[in-house]
Design a protein around this nucleic acid. Structure first.
Lengths: 143, 143
DNA sequence: AAAATAAAAGACTAAAATGTCTTTTATTTG
DNA sequence: CAAATAAAAGACATTTTAGTCTTTTATTTT
């Protein structure tokens, strides 16, 4: 469904949302451990998300990654769009370039609703809303 | 959602279902043109599907690929499983290896229903059922 | 100001997916 | 049986995705 890059990105962003709740910052090593991802790989991904203003970071001692108020309202759909593009939300299931209402692939109509479901679910899910469940260990970001 | 290989496979199988309706066979060149795919690439894919008994073929003059009665009842889900495996139907959306009811990722519950939707839709879709719509140009396998 | 810290950047490697080309094998037709 | 036909098989090439390592830059603390 998502690229590995995107899976890591979503997990990292939720992790950072939790850890940076009270104005704290979290380092790349802790993030990599917290979501069980290759350290340098997730570092590059986060750098990219930073460039696109989905999160903030500071260098130097006591530096790290964090999310501001606004970023906590960022949805998983926003991350998917930035990392994987919107192919999942708008592309044809069978790879036709011009698949549409007037030129549909065999599963166009059925797939439209599936895609819509996915998009809606991802748009509803905001980064900030998982913190509590994470702390209670009701949900997990690794294993 | 699906790999390119899988997209081609589904389109080719639907194409063959149509063309081999009345006991005819269809050659690899016609298939490649009919679904707008690289000829040698789709050839390899179909060889693989043949080995796994999802379709039949005959060499020599007047040879080609075809589906028997049984194969026309094959669902798109069957093809997806053979080509891409069942990761789409059972895997975690965020890439956790042990994501489950008791160890869920943040979107486990919502994703479960989406996956179920996709699976159901693909299981309902049988190769033989698209022939008529294809002939009426109500659906398309390329462009 | 110097040392320590931590992210940013960039070069590089590895693996998987995608695509191409050539040779071989099986079947049919003349 | 010989020639033609068409799939099977396998080697190879390219592109994309995933992952690693080293150097540079910015910030803070002493």
């Amino acid at each position: 469904m998502f690229s590995k890059t995107c899976e890591y990105a979503i997990r990292a962003m939720i992790f950072i949302a939790q850890k940076s709740k009270d104005g704290n910052k979290v380092g790349i090593k802790e993030i990599a451990k917290g979501i069980d991802s290759p350290e340098h790989f997730i570092a590059k991904i986060l750098q990219d998300l930073g460039r696109r203003s989905l999160l903030r970071s500071l260098k130097g001692p006591n530096g790290g990654f964090y999310l501001d108020k606004e970023a906590l309202e960022c949805s998983l759909a926003d991350i998917v769009k930035v990392v994987d593009g919107d192919k999942l939300f708008t592309g044809c299931g069978l790879g036709l370039k011009q698949c549409s209402e007037t030129h549909p692939c065999p599963i166009h109509h059925e797939f439209k609703s599936v895609r819509k479901n996915v998009q809606t679910l991802l748009e509803k899910a905001k980064l900030g809303e998982f913190t509590e469940e994470l702390e209670k260990s009701l949900i997990f970001l690794k294993r």
